[in-house]
Design a protein around this nucleic acid. Structure first.
Lengths: 207, 207
DNA sequence: GTTTTCATCTTTACACTGTCAAGATTTGTT
DNA sequence: AACAAATCTTGACAGTGTAAAGATGAAAAC
């Protein structure tokens, strides 16, 4: 203890970060739809217009939050990869499972990233963060294919295909239209099964 | 002309339908986030609390709109199927392409259906409509596989896999993260390519 | 060290939102 | 004809985002 804390400094000191933290919590609890800028300000114990100087309007704050979100998405993918086998294909599966981990444990943020906004503007920090997440997946695909997907358009489509599968599954689960198996292992097996399902004419021929 | 129209009847006559129509227009123009119940009422030239008696609150109106949306989704799938070859697999592809048609030309409605709400309550009209759309896809898959997917859990997963692919692609396109090819034929070919992409270890082995 | 300047935060105000309660009007029922 | 129910309006309230103007503190200039 260093004596009684000062009543409340006029300048917060690190308001930008504090608002981002509070905004993230607000997002988790209230969702994108119930998100209130004033309530975020109240969380930080600051006037309701304080955020405007740092983020402009609500869209500006959501942009900054989304940027954070993409970074966390990469973290989730990386975390799964660290716990998986080193074989390139296993690393790719782990990347997809990390994508799902993120969506399931940060549903509101996931919706913010993909569901309910304009695409990020060219050159914005948000677009850079989003591209970073995409490149992370591309790298995992490239390791399996043995070449850089960003250099070959045909390989790039394969990245999009992987992304599409993981994303569609995550979104439909969050929407409540696909139920997940209970256990952790069952979940992982289900995801792998969904990812690898063969939907070509040959694969779907009646047995 | 049958003489001057009466000033304005106190009872609208078919207000429920009128509000749904106006709500659909409002949704297209403003999106889910900018959707305003009062503005919908103004469109129909009725007091701002008139919708409440028919739909309860905003969520109630959105539920009713979503129910309509699922019916339109089925219409889009059916429309593509009518224009496609009769072979079961071509019918399945057409179903998926119809799913995309719906998403691209009704983006806000698509987001309402999947993006930004609670899952439909058991037994609600909304859930019935959603199930109808799912069953439509299941039927197309069943025709390819030669059995009813709703009777065999293993076949059911195949339906989910098809759904996941079409949905993920649609959602990422709407989010602005995947660009569509220009022409109509190129679009269709791209979708087929994305749907059929082989992501199994064998299919991804470096050439 | 004093003054000026600027970034930061607060106060105030406004238009807009959804929802509730109470009243007015029309339709349907007995 | 009288009553009951359904439908729609009016009015009020708390809550929202945003803009303008003022208060405060810190940093920079002199």
């Amino acid at each position: 203890m260093r004596g009684p804390a000062p009543p409340k400094p006029y300048h917060h000191g690190d308001l930008r970060r504090a608002i981002l933290d509070a905004g993230e919590a607000e997002l988790s609890e209230k969702g994108v739809r119930g998100f209130s800028l004033r309530h975020v300000a109240t969380r930080v114990d600051v006037s309701h217009t304080a955020p405007s100087h740092h983020f402009g309007d609500t869209a500006g704050l959501l942009d900054a939050l989304a940027e954070r979100g993409f970074l966390r998405l990469v973290d989730c993918m990386r975390a799964r990869q660290d716990r998986a086998a080193a074989a390139p294909y296993e690393q790719l599966i782990a990347t997809g499972q990390g994508y799902l981990d993120f969506a399931l444990s940060n549903s509101a943020m996931f919706r913010l990233l993909f569901g309910s906004r304009e695409p990020p503007k060219d050159g914005s920090d948000l677009q850079v963060a989003a591209l970073g997440a995409f490149l992370h997946l591309a790298k995992a695909v490239g390791a399996v294919r043995g070449c850089d997907p960003m250099q070959h358009p045909q390989e790039r489509i394969l990245v999009l295909a992987c992304w599409t599968r993981a994303h569609g599954l995550a979104d439909l689960i969050l929407s409540g239209y696909i139920d997940l198996p209970e256990g952790e292992q069952e979940r992982d097996a289900f995801f792998r099964h969904m990812l690898e399902a063969d939907v070509t004419p040959a694969g779907m021929a009646p047995s």
